[in-house]
Computed example of a mutant assay.
Amino acid sequence: MPPEWAPHAATWLSWPAHDELWFGHLNAVRGEFAELVRTIARFESVQLLVRDEESEHDARARLQGADVTFHRVPLDDVWVRDNGPIFVKRGEDVALTDWTFNAWGGKFEWANDDRVPQYVAGHLGTHRWALPLVLEGGGLEVNGAGVGLTTRSCFLTDTRNPGLTEEGYALLLSDMLGVNKLLWLDGGLENDHTDGHIDTITRFTDERTIVTSVEANPEDPNHAVMAKNLADLRAMTDLSGQPFRIVELPLPAQRLEGAEGRLPPTYANFYIGNGFVVVPQYGDPHDARALEVLSALFPEREVIGLSSRAIIEGGGSFHCVTQQQPTGQPWRPE
């Protein structure tokens, strides 16, 4: 599994629909999506899934002139990081893994979204390994040098793969994705419907550097969890036994409430593309500081802050709604 900063052939996204899924914010969400898609399309091709005629008409109207290819595909929601394919690469050959998607343990509808990797494989003409185990892309970070990061609160829930242990996951991800050392943090953000995906809190920015969310307010429920994660990360090592460089990234200062309680805004849900990094912004006092931290970690990329205040109403942000396709040629077995 290539790291996110490896060269991309394209970025895949799904256009938002169903106003009720967005608690009445669909128009604002689509506006933020359009800015995100247009920004990515400045740097690389965008492959956009649209669920129906209305969605395609809306997307085409908002994205005129952008480098976007449209695909009419039945969809349930937009979180293609989790329901889409996880690409793998050997040399210049590219194929994909198709894990079972069950909407984070059966929380929402998922039947259409679970079929997206099959469509992508068919469109690209590449091999697809269909796997009966549940795995969401947002639940795993890789550094491209054999190390992966995840959370116990997500992977070890009994609504995903009951009975699959930490050791079992380590073997599985070594076999399928080339993760030779799997590192575990305990948990994620309060009221995150993914049960604490790693991509909302802690990210690799290169083989040796990890940026991790911190909460300064000791009264905030996220404070203790993030502090424990920080301490654990400082004790972790790579395949050669060397410690990582750990960089702290503040969580937004303001508590945001949505239709179902506290929202999980985070700057760690940035997306890395060809020559750029897009960082969610929330109209928060910590927005500028987050851009400063991440700009220092990506000196050769344009670090771009875009509004995600409407998108976060759905529980995720830019990394959650994107899936990178690495460069290379489609591979199929002989």
Rank of each mutant, 00 (worst) to 15 (best):
Q325S: 05
A61P: 03
P326I: 07
W12I: 01
L249M: 12
A130L: 13
T266H: 08
F318V: 01
V279D: 02
H18S: 14
L251T: 00
A231V: 09
N269T: 10
N180C: 07
V303G: 00
F270M: 07
A95M: 14
H197I: 09
D76A: 10
L156A: 13
G24F: 06
Q242T: 11
A290V: 11
Y282A: 03
P218V: 03
A296W: 08
Q47N: 14
I311Q: 00
N83R: 06
Q47A: 13
G283N: 07
S295I: 06
L140P: 00
E302H: 13
S14N: 12
T266K: 04
A290G: 14
I246K: 06
G84K: 00
E334V: 11
A296L: 11
E136G: 12
G31N: 15
E248Q: 13
G305W: 04
D238T: 09
W184I: 04
E167F: 09
A41N: 10
G122Y: 03
V214A: 06
G328Y: 04
E166K: 04
I311L: 02
T322R: 02
M176E: 12
R152M: 12
P299K: 03
G24S: 08
G168N: 09
V50Q: 05
F204R: 01
F101D: 01
G168H: 03
Y169P: 02
R51P: 05
V68W: 08
D232V: 02
H18E: 12
P280S: 04
K107T: 11
S45P: 00
R62C: 06
H197Q: 05
A95C: 14
D158F: 03
L13P: 02
A259D: 14
A259R: 11
L164V: 15
P243G: 04
L177W: 04
N143S: 10
F298S: 07
V247A: 08
A111W: 10
A6N: 09
V120D: 01
N217Q: 07
F276S: 05
M176I: 15
T266E: 02
P16I: 00
R60L: 06
V179R: 00
P132K: 07
E56S: 09
N112R: 13
I312E: 01
E54K: 10
H25I: 02
G65V: 08
G305K: 05
D192M: 05
V80S: 02
L297S: 07
P7K: 09
H319K: 08
V247D: 04
G241W: 04
P280N: 07
L140N: 03
A259H: 13
V46A: 02
D93R: 13
V46H: 03
D220M: 09
E260F: 10
F244Q: 02
N269D: 05
Q47T: 11
D232S: 13
Q324Y: 05
G144H: 11
T100N: 10
A111V: 13
H25N: 13
P250I: 09
L306M: 11
D158C: 05
H193T: 14
Y119C: 08
A28T: 11
G241D: 10
G316F: 00
P16Y: 00
Q254W: 03
R152T: 11
G105A: 11
R245K: 14
D206H: 10
T39P: 02
T39H: 12
A28R: 03
T150A: 09
L297N: 10
A28F: 00
D76L: 10
H223F: 13
